[in-house]
Every structure is written in structure tokens, then in C-alpha cells.
Write a protein that binds this DNA or RNA. Structure first.
Lengths: 334, 334
DNA sequence: GAAATTAAGTCAAGCGCTTGTCTAAATTAA
DNA sequence: TTAATTTAGACAAGCGCTTGACTTAATTTC
């Protein structure tokens, strides 16, 4: 069906290997045959078969990306960063969504193995041991994004504890003393848990009392923020500020506060985390911690590329700084 | 390096073809050899090389997806729908982002050709003739999403004219007579243009005057919505309702209205289009037209699958209905 | 019991490209 | 002039898997 090297070779009257070399720019042909080959290739509309080439060269120029959910803006943005740099390096991306399901994760790791991808970027689920082992067993260069890793897998993160500390510290410096937190899921010991830890650390460092009643657990989504805030609003003594571990929950909290007839930030300051698109859509616009989502992706693929190139990584775990973004949902009490 | 059929064949003492057949479940072996092969394959940790298989079978089980930008929530959602069904069908996705740049689009079409993908889903840019021709020339089954197509390429859409009509009609039925529109880019004759058309049609059908001063062009993004609204607010006679061709612009408009000291919807009703996440984050929550983004993706891959299977499509262009979602940004004047 | 059928495999070509080795001619060196 | 290099290209093995055609032995048919 499609035109092959053989077709060109026959038409020009040379061997396949010569055609291959010419087409790959390997200097081993007289300029005369070179031109004839190029001309015939053009005429016939030749384009290489990357499968055959990959098989012969043992590399595919494909990176496998395993994420939880493409339509989630966080993953979409990180993936955007990955793709931006990958394309620069000449890599294509195979993207698989697992829904955070361990079996799916294992399944996709396997598929990527069979497809002989040159590298894998993993950012799905809670990084169960089985997955980590499976990734190691592939023998394929791998970088893990935003998931704590036990083994020697290279990874890239944000410092959830430190960044959350930064958020709470900001509130404290605005003069707030009674600060509630709407945390993310913390059972999984990932970001939700760490952001709560940062909150605790900040309180401790500034010698503020830690009170159970000021802690509500959410699931990072808007509705849980709303519900959590409704509970907080029932306290005898209201907090003057609320730190939500995600922008979505922060928006939910704002809605609850407004519904209760209070104002943000006049009555209660609200702070988010993520700096995703809704932080600028809500009213008031959210003060938040801006995650460098694109950069996480960019940096991940850069690390991966180094590994593929056989270079040593300076650091096995990289932490990217976040940015404190001050908008209108927080006010100074001083 | 990796274990091959040959390794298994040698160890078991049979031919490669027998191993291949057993591993593919083709009934042509005694249950005894079958079991020995399976056992050895297990022991050796064999997993197939999909490149070799694809080369031999002339199919890759890969679908190429060409989009403008992964981090854009619209594309991310459509892609999410694609991936959901694709994985069910046993397909992997190669995703490329073009930034809407024609040269990039052509480049990626070429890469997908070389990678011998089994199908292509295209939803990027303004569908220049060159791309359409390039897609046709690949000879690879292709489905186009949300882009007007001249040729015989199958496509899937929403009816921008009709849905926009529906939005404006809703406002009219609420008693609004002076309705402004913040349209998307209309030079490209794609969705922006069609949504404007729907607006005009609705006015005409309900015998409302069409006034130039009530039309502002935006670029679908929030800021342009804000700026457009600021202009509209300078009119001697204000509109009582504004239809924005995207939620983002609608949110921008709301911000401008509030800043001017007016209220939504009490003073001016605002309507959006898309039903993306910000439509529920803003205040008030947006009445909008909900695009079936996931379904666009799902349906696209289903169409593509049919074509790959060699089946005939009943329709070359499918239109999916949107949903009128009524929230709090619009009010009745009656 | 001979012929026909089936079962269980083997053989080898083919998918399309790469690349190390070899050859013959042309060029350079001495 | 002859030997040593270089150049231009051919040859063939190899990447790992699939699959149609063929072979041999076992089973069934009449």
C-alpha cells in the first residue's frame, strides 16, 4: 500500500540501505544518487514508517503519561507543560487516565511497557506500592509527579507543608489569630495531609493555640468547602479567617459565608490554594497559593529527558516553589 | 534484552509460530504444549512487543488526537470523553497540541501518519483547507470535532446557531427586549460567528430591533468580557440583559456590572455559554447553555471506531444538543 | 483396511527500516 | 608505479511478531 524504501530503491536502481542512509542524511552517497533518491522519494510521496524504524532502532520517541483524569484542570495543566517541552524534544505523548484506580494504573503501565515507550511520567492515584514496583520493574525511565515515592524513582513536587505554612503565616501576619482550615482528604497522607501539617506548624511557630473545632475535612471540591464552612459558621466564636486547601473549597466556603449574611473579607477572610481559573472568577477574587502547574510538567519531562539521555540527575526529588497571590478575599485586621 | 517469542520457543522446544499462536489463544496446540508454553512465558516474564506486532498486523491500536491546547478546559473535557471510550475499545491515545497553528497542525498530521495511527480525531484551529486536505490524504479514518468541514470528512458539532438562539429566546421570554451580546471572535466564521447569528435570528423571529450598539466582540476570555461590558455600560439606554458567548466572558461582564455599582440579575441579567466550571464559581451563578463536552468526545470516538471497523456511518455530520441551565444570573421582567 | 479428515506443529516469508561488514572503484600518498 | 586510503554502495542480518502453506501423525469414515 504505502511507499517503502524498497519501492524507491528499485525505481532508482540502488540498494535499500543506500536509500535509507540518504533519507537519514548519512553522508555515504554521491550527490548525484542522493538527488535522484530524494527526487523519487518526493515523487512517490514517501514517508517513513515509524513503527519499523522504532523496532529497528529500539526507541519510539513516545512518552507515556499516566494521570488520574484528563478533564481535571490540574492534570490538564501539568500535561500541557509536559507536552510543550516534549514536542520540542521530538517526543509524542500517549496519555492514559486511570481514575486513580490501582488496577487501571497497573494495566496502563503494562500497556506502555508493551508499546515500548521511551519514558513514563506518572501522576495518578496515591502511589501504591504495587505501582511503584511495577514502574521500577519496567526498566523504563520514569518520573513521578506530586506523589511521595519510597524507592529510587525520581520525582517532582511542591512543598505542600511549606506552602501551606506560607499561606497560614500570611493570615497570621494580617493579624488573624483565630484561623480555621478546611483541609483536603488527609487519610492518604498526600497533599491534603501535608497542607494540614503546614497549618499546624504555622500555628505552633507563632504560638497560636491549635483547636480541633477549627478543623474541617473536605475532599478538595467546591461542595465540600461549602458544607465545611456551614459547620464552622455554627461555632460560638467564629474564626476571622479560613484557609481552604483548594480554591474550589475556598469558593464553596465563600458561598456559605455570603449565604449566612456575612461578607468576605470584611467579616471573614478566605484563602485558597492552587490558583486555578475559578480563583479569579469568584467574588471576591481569591487570595491563594499559586501552584506552578505548567512548570511541574515542564520540569518533569526535562528530568525524564536527562534520564533517557543517560545523564545523571543532580537531585532525585525536586521541589518547585509556589507563589503567594494576594487578591481580595483576605483583609488585614491590623 | 527483553524476552521474545524466540526465547520461549527455544526453552520449550517448539517453533516460534506455535508460541505465537498459543499466546494469542489460537487453538492449534495440544493442551500439553499449550501449558508448557504458558508456564515458560510466565517464568520468563514475557510480554509482547507491540511495535513488532503492530508492524506485522498493520494496525497500532492508537488514535491520534490533535487539539489546540490541553490545558484548556474545553479540549480537556472533550479529550476526557474520547479517552473514556477509547480505552474501552482497547485504544491508546497520542495527543498533540498545536496552539491552533496551521503549521503545527500539518506537522502533527504527518507525525501521526508516520506513526501509523489507526484513526485521527481533529479539533484544532480553524480547519484551513490545507489541513483538511492533509487529513484526507492520509487515508486514515478521521473525525473532526466542532469544526466546519467542506469535504467528506465526518464531523461532530453542536448547533451554535440554534443553541445561541435558544439562549436569547430564553431571555426574550423572560420579558427582556433590550438584549446585548458579547460575541466571540467572529472573523473565523466558526462558533463565535454562529452564536452571533443565533442572536440575530432570535431577535428577528421575535420582532425585536437589531441594534449595532448592543453588539460587542470579545475573544471568549474573561477580560474581553469585562471590557465589552464596560463599553455597554456607557450606552445612554442600558440593556436589561446580556448574552455572552462564553461563560468566561459572562463572568467578566458580571464583574464589570458589579464594579459599576449595579446588580446581577436585579439590574442586568447575564447569560453565558458552555457551562464550564466557573459558571458555578461566580456570584451569582450563571444561567448558561451547557455544552455536552464529554459526549462530543465519546461520540467522536464512537464514530471513528465505526469507520475503522469498515462500517458505514448513518450521518456524516452529527449535532449534539445542549442544555439550557437556569441559575441565578437571569431574572424575569414579567 | 484404505482413504479422507483432523490435529498439532514446522517453515519461511513478510511487515519496513537500520546498520555493521564487505567490495570495488577512485583517490591519495610515497 | 604501487600500496594505502577513501568513497560509494551492496549485502545481509536483525528488530520481534504474524500467518499462509506445508508436513506428519493420529483419528475418523465407510
Amino acid at each position: 500500500m504505502a511507499v517503502t524504501l524498497k519501492d524507491i530503491a528499485e525505481k532508482v536502481g540502488v540498494s535499500e540501505s543506500t536509500v535509507s542512509r540518504v533519507l537519514n542524511g548519512i553522508p555515504k552517497a554521491s550527490s548525484e544518487t542522493r538527488e535522484r533518491i530524494l527526487k523519487v522519494a518526493e515523487e512517490l510521496g514517501y514517508y517513513p514508517n515509524d513503527l519499523a524504524r522504532s523496532l529497528a532502532k529500539q526507541k519510539t520517541h513516545i512518552i507515556g503519561v499516566i494521570i488520574t483524569d484528563i478533564s481535571n484542570s490540574y492534570f490538564a495543566s501539568v500535561t500541557g507543560g509536559i507536552e510543550e517541552i516534549a514536542s520540542l524534544f521530538g517526543y509524542s505523548l500517549i496519555i492514559s487516565a486511570t481514575g486513580g484506580n490501582e488496577n487501571e494504573e497497573l494495566k496502563y503501565i503494562n500497556i506502555l511497557k508493551e508499546k515500548r515507550v521511551d519514558g513514563i511520567i506518572f501522576m495518578s492515584g496515591r502511589m501504591p506500592h504495587s505501582c511503584e514496583q511495577a514502574l521500577l520493574d519496567t526498566g523504563i525511565p520514569t518520573v513521578v509527579v506530586a506523589r511521595k515515592v519510597k524507592s529510587s524513582l525520581p520525582s517532582i513536587h511542591i512543598d505542600n507543608i511549606g506552602e501551606s505554612y506560607k499561606a497560614v503565616e500570611y493570615l497570621i501576619k494580617l493579624g488573624h489569630r483565630r484561623i480555621a482550615i478546611i483541609s483536603g482528604t488527609f487519610a492518604d497522607k498526600e497533599s491534603g495531609y501535608h497542607r494540614l501539617l503546614g497549618y499546624k506548624n504555622a500555628l505552633a511557630d507563632y504560638e497560636l493555640p491549635f483547636e480541633e473545632e477549627l478543623i474541617e475535612e473536605g475532599d478538595f471540591k467546591m461542595d465540600s468547602g461549602r458544607r465545611a464552612m456551614e459547620k464552622l459558621l455554627k461555632l460560638k466564636e467564629l474564626p476571622t479567617a479560613v484557609f481552604a486547601a483548594s480554591d474550589a473549597m475556598a469558593v464553596g466556603a465563600i458561598k456559605a459565608i455570603k449565604k449566612a449574611g456575612l461578607r468576605v473579607p470584611e467579616d471573614i477572610s478566605v484563602m485558597g490554594f492552587d490558583n486555578n481559573v475559578i480563583s479569579q472568577a469568584c467574588d471576591p477574587e481569591l487570595t491563594t497559593i499559586g501552584q506552578p502547574v505548567k512548570d511541574l510538567g515542564r520540569k518533569a519531562i526535562e528530568m525524564l529527558y536527562k534520564i533517557i539521555q543517560g545523564k545523571k540527575l543532580e537531585k532525585m526529588a525536586i521541589y518547585l516553589p509556589c507563589e503567594l497571590i494576594i487578591r481580595n478575599s483576605t483583609k488585614s485586621l491590623i
